[in-house]
Design a protein around this nucleic acid. Structure first.
Lengths: 344, 344
DNA sequence: TTGTAAGCGTTATCAG
DNA sequence: CTGATAACGCTTACAA
């Protein structure tokens, strides 16, 4: 195998010039006589020469490479974000290294080390573990290498953040339920993530502001919020509460998977959505559009989230921007069919 | 920013030994006196030294890196495969480069060039364009670098293939419909992909073997089989045919998205699935489990597909295997609720 | 306009 | 057991 690639030296020999000259026609950074350029380009063509990016990277300490960390790529939410990042950085000539962390904070650090050792030019961490943010790990990291945190945030920790306005999005959702007459709203979340915390805070706030009694038993927590099991787990939890809590008229889910689980729970109990029970999701992943009834949900425009992050990391790398920024992207409530008026 | 990383030279200086010695304790490939090892390790610790993988790669021409090409990462099918690959190669110490090709055959080549320039040790192409296979492009590539093609195949083209037994899977599905009494079966596919072709061939074969009249108008082709629009397009096509073709009792879809589109079409026309119309999908992506009714579909165990490919590419790289192989993974028909008996 | 030589951070070869 | 030194493929002063 491996009939080895031509090097710049081979080209130089073939064209009868020095290595330097070849480098110059390659990079177009110094004048070269038209005739020699022709010769060199010919040789490049014939030998099918392509510069070795490793060697270049070694010199410049720039690899045109960006590391992306995700808790689980097989989750629609994350993969759409990754897609957005990829398209944005590709436009700037970068290629992505991918790392699945399984939502484990140690793996997260390990993968980051790995990326640093590979001399990536920047790192984007999607939904990183909050403890790594709080501990200052990311803040320290961001002093070594351009870094962006997507959907994670901690006040007082200085980093570059790009996130959805989960607070506003959630609040809008709660208000909408309220307007539809709902007064008993369950809250369904995953165990650990900044984004869940934010929404739960808003939920409490909302209860207070709207003079609703906050009931601890209305907070439902699924173990894993991103894996494929989320739907099943959510279904089980919601079935359970629907059986005993007869006063409940609606539910807010922190993501669409959970909402689907809730939907299925209602179905299996013969409860009609939205007539007897209302459900609101979050994320506007494609599944929210294909359920029956289609889910009312909050659009996060994941791919835009990714694109903005991708663009921003390139700016950071190229030094076009230096201070830390917190970019908040607006969400939008999409009213579809899973929420209805309370009938009294 | 960029307070620069310690190099092996810094470690050597600090430990008072030569660079060579440091390299030796790093790689444990030559004996080093216990005392010196201690000194060196101490220095490594203090300086937080991590070897530069670029430099290593330059020497060994091995980067512990694998390039993955996918038509679109935000598609559940592909992202599950990627996940499988990632977990398998990670176990062998490799990291993944990711490239989205948008299903475009030129982009595919471009991305592959990019990966080669980055000295990846191997390449895995998921659902690559058939024309690139047929043209011999991939066969030539596989002589230069370890390569695996997932879900693509061309008889006479020598490459390493890993694929699902779409033929058997599809046949099993057709037979099942037949057993349930269906005699008028529509076939829904995407425009261009090896996997669609295989299934359509089986469909024709099936019609012949079971003495069903093959009707050209029963072949439905959506433009894009993998994008987010697939569901909508499928819905439109199926609505159309259901309106005019009253004899139709069932439909086979080449993937679950298309099946969902079909499901929605039936719903919008007030046709009950499976009582009045049966639908069968393919892939067993998570959505097939959350539709109502749940989709009868063919399980491809995507993540296993990825894992096997990941393992195999590592073998190829490490020279444990050399000849080309075609690994075929069995599929399994999952009977759920979207297919029913024909009522006469 | 072109070439020589040093250097990026490692590992491998060859002496000691 | 240890240390110079060349080499990997490329870029970039510095010279010519």
């Amino acid at each position: 195998m491996e009939q080895k690639r031509a090097t710049i030296g081979d080209v130089a020999k073939r064209a009868g010039v020095s290595i330097t000259t070849v480098s110059r026609v390659l990079n177009k950074n110094y004048p070269v006589k038209e005739a020699t350029r022709q010769k060199v380009e010919e040789a490049i063509e014939i030998l099918d020469f392509k510069p070795n990016l490793l060697a270049r990277g070694l010199i410049h300490n720039r690899t045109q490479t960006i590391g992306i960390l995700t808790p689980s790529i097989e989750n629609l939410f994350f993969s759409e974000v990754v897609k957005g990042i990829d398209s944005a950085i590709k436009a700037n000539g970068y290629t992505a290294f991918l790392g699945n962390t399984e939502g484990d904070s140690d793996q997260e650090k390990l993968m980051i080390d790995n990326m640093k050792n590979r001399s990536v030019d920047g790192i984007i961490a999607i939904n990183p573990r909050t403890n790594n943010i709080k501990s200052g790990y990311y803040e320290a990291l961001s002093k070594q290498i351009p870094l962006i945190i997507i959907n994670g945030y901690n006040r007082g920790i200085h980093c570059n953040y790009v996130l959805n306005d989960g607070e506003v999005g959630a609040l809008e959702a709660f208000r909408y339920l309220y307007e539809c007459g709902h007064r008993e709203i369950a809250f369904l979340r995953g165990q650990v993530s900044y984004s869940y915390d934010v929404k739960e805070d808003m939920y409490k706030q909302f209860c207070k502001d709207y003079h609703l009694t906050y009931r601890h038993e209305n907070i439902l927590v699924v173990e894993d919020g991103n894996g494929l099991e989320t739907v099943e787990q959510s279904k089980a939890l919601v079935e359970q509460i629907l059986r005993k809590q007869s006063g409940l008229t609606s539910l807010f889910a922190c993501n669409d998977w959970m909402a689907v689980g809730a939907l299925n729970a209602a179905k299996s109990l013969g409860i009609t959505v939205p007539d007897d029970f209302s459900i609101i999701g979050f994320d506007n992943t494609i599944i929210s559009q294909i359920t029956e009834p289609r889910l009312t949900t909050v659009d996060q425009s994941m791919s835009r989230l990714g694109q903005i992050s991708g663009k921003r990391i390139c700016e950071l790398i190229e030094g076009k921007s230096s201070e830390n920024k917190k970019i908040v992207i607006e969400t939008k409530l999409l009213k579809r069919e899973s929420v209805g008026q309370v009938n009294r």
